[in-house]
Each structure stands twice: as structure tokens, then as C-alpha cells.
Write a protein that binds this DNA or RNA. Structure first.
Lengths: 145, 145
DNA sequence: TATAAAACCTACTTAGTTACTGGGGATTGC
DNA sequence: GCAATCCCCAGTAACTAAGTAGGTTTTATA
């Protein structure tokens, strides 16, 4: 029941992009350094975000990535489902294909459904803007202290 | 972000035991047949439940397993944490050991904490008795139809 | 226009996990 | 004493996670 590095790095990448938005593209190398993660690996994670149109890349010197939407328009759910696959706690409720024949009168399935709703409730109602806000509030706190 | 068969089978085993409680021990073989899962594999899952004292075994003919508590006294959270390990969505918030040095001002960690709370909210407030009740209500429905 | 900086692409790797199967040994009710 | 049942351990095939490695393509700038 763990979120893998793909999903976690994707969120940190998007947040880093949002926090360092100057209009100019941000390089993977810089994000990787700030986030202390492998840049070669981050590259692969970012490729997924790029293909899905969540970020736009520009190549060559001064190249890098920028967000394509406002931070408030990205939910954690989108980012996680893109990078992790579906976020349902059991496969048999994710889609029709994985449904088992017991589904109709399976009480455990109903329990999993409630868990899924709780998970979705959080990830689909938290946006990149929410995290940015917290980040800003946090660094303000640090200055006060 | 999936619950493995260990956790799922453990819940189904416990629920099956609760539903077939006649005071007499229930055999793994029977549960496995009803639940349509491998009995050799279920054996291993049950060993964990047994070692933790969630069920009591008796050997020899007419042997099997019985619950050690009332169904209302088992939460899904207990069963899942026993069989799956901790249910936190990221390792760095599960325990002190896995904490990274960025933890103090990590906004993503705060997000994961909210997700964890949502998950715990469901799994720690659903008991075996809740599932039994649903199961009974469900089979009653089936008769009406 | 050459150069270097960046993204882009594909293949490989190592370690670990999942979901079992299989074979036997220890207990114990009848 | 026998068979049923739990108990214990070993192995395994397929998959996933989390990278590493090495190149190719595009492009801003000197």
C-alpha cells in the first residue's frame, strides 16, 4: 500500500516547477539537485508528465520545463493516477476488466470501495496550489523563528 | 498503492470464520473452498493471524481455527497492518527510522499525512462485525429479490 | 556556423516482492 | 494406530521498483 517514487517524484517535480515559476523554463538538473533525487531517473518520470501535456518542454540551451496550467488546476489525484496507475486499493474495483464474478455480493468489495472513496476524497481535492500555499506559509514561519 | 492478497485473504478468512461460528473449529480447507483461494497459500496467511493471537488453532481431526475475540473487537486496520505491514502511503511517515532529513519542512509529507489519516479513518473504524452485518443484510436482500 | 546545453529515447540491471507450489513433520480425536 | 488437521520450511516464476548507462536530437548563443 505504498506510493512509489514515480508518483512522489512527479509531485515534487510539479511543485518545484510551480515554486520556481519565473516564466523561464526550469531544468531537470536543477530540480533534481534541489530535491536531491537522481536526475536521470527524474527524466523518465517527467517524460510521462510531458507526454500527458501536464508540462511543456523546450530543448537546447536555456531549455527546460514549464507548467501548462495554473497550479490550482492540477490535483494530486491526476498526477498520481498518471504516474502510478489507478489509485484504487484493490484491482477488482478499478475497472470492469479486473472485476471478479463475486463482485455483486462481496462485502469486502464494499469496504474497499469506502476506502477508495476516502483516498479519492483527499487526492482529488488537493491541488498544487494548496501545496504551494503551505510551502509559503511554512517558510514564513521559519523566518519568524 | 494496492493491498496484496495477504491482507485481502486475511480479511476474508476472518470474516468467513465469523460467519461460520458454531463454536466448533473451522478448517482452512473449507474456508479456502468457499473463498475460492489456494489453501496452501491461505495456510501461510493464517499462520500470521495465529501467531498474533487473532485466531486460536486446534490440531488433529475436527481441528481448525476459531476467533479469539468478538467480531466487533477486530478492526480492519489491525488485520491489515499485521499482514501488510504499516498502511502509511509513504515509508517516511511510517516510523522514525524511515524519516528523511527533509521531514521538518516537507509539504508533500503533510499531504501524505492527510492521506494517511483518511485511510486510517476508514480502516480503523470498520470492524469485522460491520462486515458481518452487511453480509447478512445483503443475503436478506437476495431472498427478497 | 560551431559548440555546448538541454531534452529525448532505449536498453539494461540489481534487488526485492508477490503469489503461489510442494514436501514433509508434529499433534491429536476417534 | 490411523488419518485428519495444523505446522514449518524451501523453492520458484513472474513481476515491479528504482535506478544506471549511453547515446541521439534539437536549439540558443558566441
Amino acid at each position: 500500500m505504498k506510493v512509489s517514487t514515480k508518483g512522489r517524484y512527479a509531485i515534487r517535480f510539479m511543485l518545484d516547477l510551480a515554486m520556481h515559476d519565473t516564466g523561464l523554463p526550469v531544468r531537470i538538473r536543477d530540480v533534481a539537485a534541489r530535491q536531491e533525487i537522481s536526475d536521470k531517473y527524474l527524466e523518465q518520470v517527467v517524460a510521462t508528465l510531458n507526454k500527458a501535456g501536464y508540462v511543456r518542454s523546450s530543448r537546447g540551451p536555456q531549455g527546460g520545463y514549464v507548467l501548462t496550467r495554473r497550479p490550482a488546476d492540477y490535483t494530486m489525484g491526476e498526477i498520481l493516477r498518471l504516474t502510478e496507475g489507478d489509485m484504487a486499493p484493490v484491482a477488482c474495483m478499478a475497472d470492469e476488466v479486473n472485476q471478479c464474478k463475486r463482485a455483486d455480493n462481496c462485502v469486502t468489495l464494499r469496504f474497499w470501495k469506502r476506502l477508495d472513496d476516502a483516498i479519492s476524497g483527499v487526492i482529488d481535492h488537493t491541488t498544487l496550489a494548496d501545496l504551494m500555499e503551505e510551502e509559503l506559509a511554512m517558510s514564513a514561519d521559519n523566518y519568524v523563528i
